[in-house]
Simulated scan of single mutants.
Amino acid sequence: MTEGFREVYGGRPDGVWAAPGRVNLIGEHTDYNDGFVMPLALPQTCAVQAARRDDGVLRLHSSDVRGGVTELRVDSLAPLGATGDRGGWAAYPAGVVWALRAAGLRVGGVDLHFESTVPTGAGLSSSAALEVATAVALNDLYTLGLDAPRLAQLCRRAENDFVGVPCGVMDQMASACCTPGHALHLDTRDLTRRQVPIDLAAQGLRLLVVDTRVKHSLGDGAYAERRAGCEAGAAALGVRTLREVPYEELPQALERLGEERLRRLVRHVVTENHRVSEVVRLLDAGRTRDIGPVLSEGHASLRDDFTVSCAELDLAVEAAEKAGALGARMTGGGFGGSAIVLAEASEAAAVGEAVHDAFAKAEHREPRVFEAVPGGGAGRITAS
């Protein structure tokens, strides 16, 4: 468990912490609109072996990235966002150190060695897992006494203000706060949350993740463009965020918008919030199979109104549904990454094979298909 740290730093870590990736069941591009989301934690995690230092030096190393140790001074950390330079993978844990110190917390030097099984570039929040793993380690090493939601908020600040990515808080909250066997129903406006049971195995169901293993460059700036468009739509409607537009009043709201682009963005966000509420209602009623069509509706909205899908994601959804899946949709920011598929357990293997066959026929890169089993949030996994 600690061999990597010893090889890099020549000593023993003070402990090992881990934070999971996440897959979002429903509620896409709603978190930065103060809306509702419903992620669940994946079994795949980012683990960090960490040891406190007393000299103000931050050393970072990852077994998943080529290169040596990145060495920085904690009192010299400064945001990268204004420069347009994301700073590579090391900016994310460095940003967490910066965010904790900017919040007035006494955080000093530390040696960190990361090992992750969360696929990168797959829309499964590998960056949030990296951030949250760092945060929980520092929380323990420096006895900060912060709870999981507060750590998630500080990790979001690290990504927004230090790295320069205008993400919402869903990914960090999922990585920090999910519990096994549940999906996290999160209100991103006030961070109230509820753990909703989702026992797929007991109902003879499987939730598959299809990692298309592609990421289109269009997504680099398109996320910020969609966010700006949502803000423009809210301003045109005279509300602070699109969360304040009631689903029942959507037709009237759309009539007030003169620009078709804004109509489409607003329609997606408002209907997506409604879909989250519908999935919660169905799960509470024990009607898990019935969430399948809601997932498929969400994909159509992301594809046609929010326009963040791509050929590979559309093919994964189409092939899965043709093979008998109960529902499927892209998950994450879009322009590549992953889709999720709800299927009967007895048909899951055939659905996965159908997706593989469709990708091969289209001469796409071979996808990676695995089961998503709702897991728990971040924490310490060993003392040393």
Rank of each mutant, 00 (worst) to 15 (best):
N160P: 09
N160M: 09
D161P: 06
D161A: 13
D161V: 10
V163T: 06
V163P: 03
G164A: 07
G164V: 03
V165W: 05
P166V: 00
C167N: 07
G168M: 10
G168C: 13
M170D: 08
M170R: 10
D171V: 05
D171F: 02
D171Q: 01
Q172Y: 01
Q172N: 02
Q172C: 05
M173R: 05
M173Y: 12
M173A: 13
A176F: 07
C178L: 14
C178T: 07
P180L: 11
P180W: 09
H182D: 11
L184F: 12
L186E: 13
L186C: 15
L186W: 12
D187W: 10
D187C: 02
T188M: 02
D190A: 12
D190Y: 14
D190I: 14
L191P: 02
L191C: 03
T192E: 13
T192R: 15
T192Y: 06
R193C: 05
R193D: 09
R193M: 10
R193L: 09
Q195N: 08
P197V: 10
I198Y: 10
I198V: 15
D199W: 09
L200A: 05
L200F: 13
L200T: 09
L200M: 07
A201P: 06
A201V: 01
A201Q: 03
A201N: 03
A202C: 07
G204P: 05
L205M: 12
R206I: 14
R206N: 11
L207S: 06
L207G: 03
L208P: 01
V209E: 11
V209C: 05
V209F: 08
V209Q: 13
V210M: 08
V210D: 04
V210W: 08
D211F: 05
D211R: 00
D211I: 02
T212W: 09
R213K: 08
R213P: 01
R213V: 04
K215S: 12
H216K: 06
H216Y: 02
H216S: 05
S217F: 00
L218V: 11
D220W: 06
D220I: 12
D220F: 04
G221Y: 00
A222Q: 14
R226N: 01
R227C: 04
R227I: 03
R227M: 00
G229V: 06
C230Y: 12
C230E: 11
A232P: 09
A232Y: 01
G233F: 04
A234T: 13
A234G: 15
A235Y: 10
A235E: 14
A236L: 15
G238N: 02
G238L: 02
G238I: 00
V239F: 00
V239T: 12
V239M: 06
V239S: 08
R240G: 00
R240V: 10
R240Q: 04
T241W: 04
T241N: 07
T241D: 08
T241P: 05
T241V: 09
T241S: 08
L242I: 01
L242C: 00
L242P: 03
L242H: 01
R243V: 14
R243S: 13
R243H: 11
E244H: 15
E244P: 01
E244N: 12
V245E: 08
P246N: 15
P246E: 13
P246R: 15
Y247V: 13
Y247S: 11
Y247C: 14
E248D: 13
L250G: 02
P251V: 06
Q252D: 03
Q252I: 00
